[in-house]
């Protein structure tokens, strides 16, 4: 069985408005505002800091569709 990779998210920071909904929705505190960057909208965009469990909450609640979740497909158990 191949080694399962950990899930992770990618954030399109250009569209991010810094509303912090993803931060409030994340159960594992994997996202924070990147205070070192100011994007074209003039806000500190969200940044992924690691520890994603692949629940997809941030992706669901993001009003600007900035977040994409990458995770391995579930392997079906053979009978």
């Amino acid at each position: 069985m191949p080694e399962t990779k950990k899930p992770y998210i990618e954030i399109v920071t250009d569209r991010c408005k810094g509303c912090e909904l993803c931060i409030s929705a994340c159960p594992k505190d994997c996202i924070e505002l990147d205070t070192s960057v100011v994007n074209a909208k003039g806000v500190n965009p969200a940044k992924y800091v690691g520890g994603c469990i692949g629940c997809g909450s941030c992706m669901l609640i993001c009003p600007d569709v900035c977040i994409e979740l990458y995770k391995e497909e579930k392997i079906q158990k053979s009978a």
Partner: peptide, 9 residues
């Protein structure tokens, strides 16, 4: 790695 949901068409 697979995207679970990409940007809607």
């Amino acid at each position: 790695m697979q995207t679970t949901k990409s940007h809607p068409k």
